[in-house]
């Protein structure tokens, strides 16, 4: 089966997020003054072949742990849908 995979990489709580803070600080000057907790991460999309969704998820989790994230400072959220 083919699956569309979305990996969202975010900084772990307590890790500095200068892009998020800078964007948040710029918002009031544009009139957006009710927005808080801005965080910037990465979205990585790809297509993969796997026997089933469970197997696909296992592979992607391993990929995240070994390459796509640095577990010391980042978390990953994985979304898998059959194409």
């Amino acid at each position: 089966m083919r699956f569309d995979v979305l990996v969202e990489v975010s900084l772990r709580p307590g890790i500095a997020d200068p892009q998020g803070s800078t964007i948040e600080r710029a918002l009031p000057s544009l009139g957006f003054d009710r927005i808080e907790a801005v965080h910037v991460g990465k979205a990585i999309r790809f297509i993969m072949e796997a026997p089933d969704e469970h197997s696909a998820r296992g592979t992607v989790e391993e990929l995240c742990k070994r390459f796509l994230t640095n577990p010391v400072i980042e978390d990953a959220s994985i979304t898998i849908t059959a194409s």
């Binding site: 900084l11 890790i15 500095a16 997020d17 200068p18 803070s21 800078t22 640095n70 010391v72 400072i73």
Partner: peptide, 17 residues
């Protein structure tokens, strides 16, 4: 060296941006 696992920990963005 930290990414390759020779040394522990990681380097994050500077405090103060």
């Amino acid at each position: 060296l930290t990414e390759a696992g020779f040394l522990p920990g990681a380097l994050q963005k500077n405090r103060g941006l």
